Computed example of a mutant assay.
Amino acid sequence: MTILEIDSLRKTFKMHVVGGKRVVGLDDVSFDVEDGEFLAIVGESGSGKSSLLKCLYRTYIPSGGAIRFASTDGDVDLASCTEREMLALRDDEIGYASQFLDEIPRVPAVDVVARPLVEDGVPRPAARDTARDLLTELNLPEELHDAYPATFSGGERQRVNLARAIAPRPRLLLLDEPTSALDPETKAAAIDLLDRYLTDQTTVVGVFHNRDVVAQVADRVVVLDDAALQRVVDVEAYVDETSSDTERPKSEVGA
Protein backbone atom coordinates (compact mmCIF):
# COMPACT_ATOMS: atom_id res chain seq x y z
CA MET A 1 0.00 0.00 0.00
CA THR A 2 1.23 3.49 -0.88
CA ILE A 3 1.00 5.87 2.08
CA LEU A 4 2.61 8.90 0.42
CA GLU A 5 2.59 9.95 -3.24
CA ILE A 6 4.69 12.96 -4.24
CA ASP A 7 3.67 14.17 -7.69
CA SER A 8 5.55 16.92 -9.61
CA LEU A 9 6.42 18.73 -6.37
CA ARG A 10 7.93 22.18 -6.83
CA LYS A 11 9.21 24.83 -4.46
CA THR A 12 10.56 28.23 -5.48
CA PHE A 13 11.90 30.82 -3.06
CA LYS A 14 11.72 34.56 -3.73
CA MET A 15 14.77 36.34 -2.32
CA HIS A 16 13.46 39.80 -1.43
CA VAL A 17 16.84 41.02 -0.15
CA VAL A 18 18.41 40.53 -3.60
CA GLY A 19 15.83 42.22 -5.77
CA GLY A 20 13.25 39.45 -5.82
CA LYS A 21 15.55 36.84 -7.34
CA ARG A 22 13.92 33.41 -7.52
CA VAL A 23 15.76 30.30 -6.34
CA VAL A 24 14.50 26.82 -7.19
CA GLY A 25 14.40 24.58 -4.12
CA LEU A 26 12.59 21.64 -5.73
CA ASP A 27 11.99 21.06 -9.42
CA ASP A 28 9.26 18.59 -10.48
CA VAL A 29 10.04 15.87 -7.91
CA SER A 30 7.90 12.70 -7.99
CA PHE A 31 8.11 9.41 -6.06
CA ASP A 32 5.99 7.14 -3.84
CA VAL A 33 6.51 5.88 -0.30
CA GLU A 34 5.16 2.50 0.73
CA ASP A 35 3.40 1.90 4.04
CA GLY A 36 5.89 0.77 6.69
CA GLU A 37 9.08 1.41 4.74
CA PHE A 38 12.10 3.50 5.72
CA LEU A 39 12.99 5.88 2.90
CA ALA A 40 16.24 7.85 3.05
CA ILE A 41 16.74 11.13 1.17
CA VAL A 42 20.32 11.89 0.21
CA GLY A 43 22.19 14.44 -1.87
CA GLU A 44 24.83 17.13 -1.73
CA SER A 45 24.34 20.27 0.36
CA GLY A 46 21.77 22.47 -1.37
CA SER A 47 20.26 19.62 -3.37
CA GLY A 48 16.80 20.16 -1.86
CA LYS A 49 16.69 17.49 0.87
CA SER A 50 15.47 19.66 3.75
CA SER A 51 13.19 21.66 1.44
CA LEU A 52 11.49 18.42 0.44
CA LEU A 53 11.01 17.34 4.04
CA LYS A 54 9.67 20.75 5.06
CA CYS A 55 7.18 20.64 2.18
CA LEU A 56 5.98 17.24 3.41
CA TYR A 57 5.46 18.68 6.90
CA ARG A 58 4.11 21.94 5.43
CA THR A 59 6.71 24.11 7.14
CA TYR A 60 7.12 25.26 3.53
CA ILE A 61 4.08 25.69 1.30
CA PRO A 62 4.85 24.00 -2.04
CA SER A 63 4.79 26.16 -5.17
CA GLY A 64 3.15 23.39 -7.17
CA GLY A 65 2.44 19.69 -7.39
CA ALA A 66 0.69 17.33 -4.98
CA ILE A 67 1.56 15.33 -1.84
CA ARG A 68 -1.14 12.71 -1.38
CA PHE A 69 -1.13 11.19 2.12
CA ALA A 70 -3.23 8.13 2.93
CA SER A 71 -4.64 9.34 6.24
CA THR A 72 -6.78 7.08 8.41
CA ASP A 73 -9.69 9.35 7.47
CA GLY A 74 -9.00 9.23 3.73
CA ASP A 75 -6.54 10.71 1.24
CA VAL A 76 -5.32 14.25 1.93
CA ASP A 77 -3.21 16.48 -0.31
CA LEU A 78 -0.62 17.93 2.08
CA ALA A 79 0.31 20.53 -0.54
CA SER A 80 -3.13 22.13 -0.58
CA CYS A 81 -5.04 21.10 2.56
CA THR A 82 -6.09 23.73 5.08
CA GLU A 83 -3.93 24.72 8.03
CA ARG A 84 -6.54 23.19 10.36
CA GLU A 85 -6.31 19.87 8.52
CA MET A 86 -2.52 19.95 8.61
CA LEU A 87 -2.41 20.71 12.34
CA ALA A 88 -4.79 17.82 13.01
CA LEU A 89 -2.57 15.45 11.02
CA ARG A 90 0.49 16.62 12.97
CA ASP A 91 -1.35 15.91 16.20
CA ASP A 92 -2.61 12.48 15.19
CA GLU A 93 -0.51 10.93 12.43
CA ILE A 94 2.61 12.85 11.30
CA GLY A 95 5.71 13.37 13.43
CA TYR A 96 8.77 15.48 12.67
CA ALA A 97 12.26 15.87 14.11
CA SER A 98 14.43 18.68 12.80
CA GLN A 99 18.13 19.10 13.50
CA PHE A 100 17.33 21.64 16.19
CA LEU A 101 15.14 21.49 19.29
CA ASP A 102 12.60 24.29 19.63
CA GLU A 103 10.85 23.93 22.95
CA ILE A 104 9.15 25.99 25.65
CA PRO A 105 11.78 27.30 28.10
CA ARG A 106 11.98 25.82 31.60
CA VAL A 107 10.29 22.53 30.66
CA PRO A 108 12.34 19.49 31.77
CA ALA A 109 13.58 17.13 29.06
CA VAL A 110 11.44 14.26 30.35
CA ASP A 111 8.29 16.35 29.96
CA VAL A 112 9.30 17.53 26.49
CA VAL A 113 9.45 13.89 25.41
CA ALA A 114 6.35 12.84 27.36
CA ARG A 115 4.12 15.64 26.08
CA PRO A 116 2.97 14.02 22.79
CA LEU A 117 2.12 10.84 24.69
CA VAL A 118 0.08 12.76 27.26
CA GLU A 119 -1.71 14.56 24.42
CA ASP A 120 -2.55 11.11 22.98
CA GLY A 121 -4.22 10.16 26.26
CA VAL A 122 -1.40 8.23 27.95
CA PRO A 123 -1.46 8.79 31.74
CA ARG A 124 1.25 11.25 32.72
CA PRO A 125 3.24 8.83 34.96
CA ALA A 126 3.35 6.18 32.21
CA ALA A 127 4.26 8.81 29.59
CA ARG A 128 7.13 10.05 31.75
CA ASP A 129 8.36 6.49 32.29
CA THR A 130 8.45 5.92 28.53
CA ALA A 131 10.21 9.25 28.06
CA ARG A 132 12.89 8.34 30.59
CA ASP A 133 13.39 4.95 28.91
CA LEU A 134 13.87 6.60 25.51
CA LEU A 135 16.27 9.22 26.85
CA THR A 136 18.28 6.50 28.60
CA GLU A 137 18.41 4.47 25.37
CA LEU A 138 19.86 7.56 23.68
CA ASN A 139 22.58 7.87 26.32
CA LEU A 140 21.26 11.06 27.88
CA PRO A 141 22.57 11.04 31.49
CA GLU A 142 19.84 10.47 34.06
CA GLU A 143 20.70 13.69 35.88
CA LEU A 144 19.69 15.61 32.74
CA HIS A 145 16.23 14.06 32.46
CA ASP A 146 14.77 16.68 34.80
CA ALA A 147 16.98 19.51 33.52
CA TYR A 148 16.03 22.12 30.92
CA PRO A 149 17.11 21.38 27.30
CA ALA A 150 17.97 25.06 26.83
CA THR A 151 21.10 24.36 28.87
CA PHE A 152 22.09 21.26 26.86
CA SER A 153 24.75 20.80 24.21
CA GLY A 154 23.71 20.41 20.57
CA GLY A 155 24.03 16.62 20.70
CA GLU A 156 22.03 16.39 23.94
CA ARG A 157 19.28 18.57 22.49
CA GLN A 158 19.18 16.41 19.38
CA ARG A 159 18.62 13.31 21.52
CA VAL A 160 15.66 14.97 23.23
CA ASN A 161 14.28 16.01 19.85
CA LEU A 162 14.54 12.49 18.43
CA ALA A 163 13.00 10.90 21.53
CA ARG A 164 10.07 13.31 21.40
CA ALA A 165 9.43 12.57 17.72
CA ILE A 166 9.44 8.79 18.00
CA ALA A 167 7.68 8.52 21.40
CA PRO A 168 4.09 8.40 20.04
CA ARG A 169 5.04 6.10 17.12
CA PRO A 170 3.34 8.27 14.45
CA ARG A 171 2.08 6.71 11.22
CA LEU A 172 4.46 8.94 9.24
CA LEU A 173 7.73 10.11 10.81
CA LEU A 174 9.86 12.77 9.10
CA LEU A 175 13.49 13.02 10.23
CA ASP A 176 15.87 15.81 9.20
CA GLU A 177 19.47 14.73 9.91
CA PRO A 178 18.47 13.12 13.24
CA THR A 179 21.98 11.86 14.07
CA SER A 180 24.15 14.69 12.70
CA ALA A 181 25.30 16.00 16.12
CA LEU A 182 25.67 12.63 17.85
CA ASP A 183 28.91 10.92 18.81
CA PRO A 184 29.52 7.49 17.23
CA GLU A 185 28.32 5.53 20.29
CA THR A 186 25.09 7.51 20.62
CA LYS A 187 24.54 7.43 16.86
CA ALA A 188 24.68 3.62 16.99
CA ALA A 189 22.24 3.66 19.92
CA ALA A 190 19.86 5.93 17.98
CA ILE A 191 19.92 3.65 14.94
CA ASP A 192 19.24 0.63 17.15
CA LEU A 193 16.38 2.45 18.88
CA LEU A 194 14.76 3.41 15.59
CA ASP A 195 14.84 -0.24 14.57
CA ARG A 196 13.51 -1.64 17.85
CA TYR A 197 11.03 0.99 18.99
CA LEU A 198 9.28 1.77 15.72
CA THR A 199 7.03 -0.92 14.29
CA ASP A 200 5.92 -1.59 10.72
CA GLN A 201 3.00 0.74 11.42
CA THR A 202 5.38 3.70 11.24
CA THR A 203 6.61 4.87 7.85
CA VAL A 204 9.84 6.89 8.00
CA VAL A 205 11.15 9.46 5.53
CA GLY A 206 14.51 10.79 6.66
CA VAL A 207 17.23 13.10 5.38
CA PHE A 208 20.73 11.73 5.94
CA HIS A 209 24.26 12.62 4.91
CA ASN A 210 26.07 9.56 6.27
CA ARG A 211 26.18 6.59 3.88
CA ASP A 212 26.79 4.09 6.69
CA VAL A 213 23.68 5.26 8.55
CA VAL A 214 21.63 4.99 5.36
CA ALA A 215 22.92 1.46 4.82
CA GLN A 216 21.77 0.42 8.30
CA VAL A 217 18.29 1.97 8.41
CA ALA A 218 16.87 2.43 4.90
CA ASP A 219 14.86 0.20 2.60
CA ARG A 220 15.08 2.55 -0.39
CA VAL A 221 16.97 5.75 -1.18
CA VAL A 222 15.85 8.92 -2.98
CA VAL A 223 18.81 10.75 -4.53
CA LEU A 224 18.42 14.48 -5.17
CA ASP A 225 20.78 16.75 -7.08
CA ASP A 226 20.38 20.45 -7.86
CA ALA A 227 16.74 20.45 -6.64
CA ALA A 228 15.77 17.59 -8.96
CA LEU A 229 15.15 13.88 -8.47
CA GLN A 230 18.00 11.81 -9.87
CA ARG A 231 16.84 8.31 -9.00
CA VAL A 232 15.09 6.09 -6.45
CA VAL A 233 16.99 2.87 -5.69
CA ASP A 234 17.00 0.00 -3.22
CA VAL A 235 19.47 0.59 -0.39
CA GLU A 236 21.66 -2.29 -1.57
CA ALA A 237 22.07 -0.67 -4.98
CA TYR A 238 22.82 2.70 -3.36
CA VAL A 239 25.52 1.18 -1.14
CA ASP A 240 27.07 -0.63 -4.11
CA GLU A 241 27.17 2.47 -6.31
CA THR A 242 28.63 4.69 -3.58
CA SER A 243 31.09 2.23 -2.04
CA SER A 244 33.67 2.97 -4.74
CA ASP A 245 33.91 6.56 -3.47
CA THR A 246 35.12 5.34 -0.08
CA GLU A 247 37.80 3.24 -1.76
CA ARG A 248 39.26 6.08 -3.84
CA PRO A 249 41.79 8.62 -2.56
CA LYS A 250 40.11 11.74 -1.18
CA SER A 251 41.73 13.82 -3.90
CA GLU A 252 39.84 11.79 -6.51
CA VAL A 253 36.40 11.64 -4.91
CA GLY A 254 34.00 13.91 -6.73
CA ALA A 255 36.51 14.47 -9.53
Rank of each mutant, 00 (worst) to 15 (best):
L52E: 04
L52T: 07
L53T: 02
L53G: 03
K54N: 06
C55M: 00
C55N: 00
L56F: 07
Y57K: 01
R58G: 02
R58N: 03
R58K: 11
T59F: 14
Y60F: 08
I61F: 04
I61C: 01
P62T: 05
S63I: 13
S63A: 10
S63D: 12
S63Y: 06
G64M: 12
G64I: 13
G64E: 13
G64D: 09
G65Y: 09
A66N: 11
R68L: 15
F69C: 07
A70N: 03
S71Q: 08
S71N: 05
G74S: 04
G74C: 02
G74D: 01
G74H: 01
D75W: 04
D77K: 05
D77R: 03
L78W: 02
A79Y: 00
A79K: 01
T82F: 02
E83V: 02
R84F: 03
E85C: 06
L87T: 11
L87I: 11
L89C: 12
L89D: 13
E93Y: 15
E93W: 15
E93A: 15
E93L: 14
Y96D: 06
S98C: 08
S98H: 09
Q99N: 14
Q99L: 04
Q99C: 13
F100A: 09
F100Q: 14
L101Y: 11
L101N: 05
I104D: 07
R106F: 02
R106C: 03
R106T: 04
R106W: 04
A109N: 10
A109T: 00
A109F: 10
V110N: 05
D111S: 07
D111R: 00
D111P: 00
V112I: 13
V113T: 05
A114H: 07
P116W: 04
P116C: 10
L117T: 00
L117C: 12
D120E: 13
D120I: 04
D120S: 14
D120H: 13
G121C: 06
V122A: 00
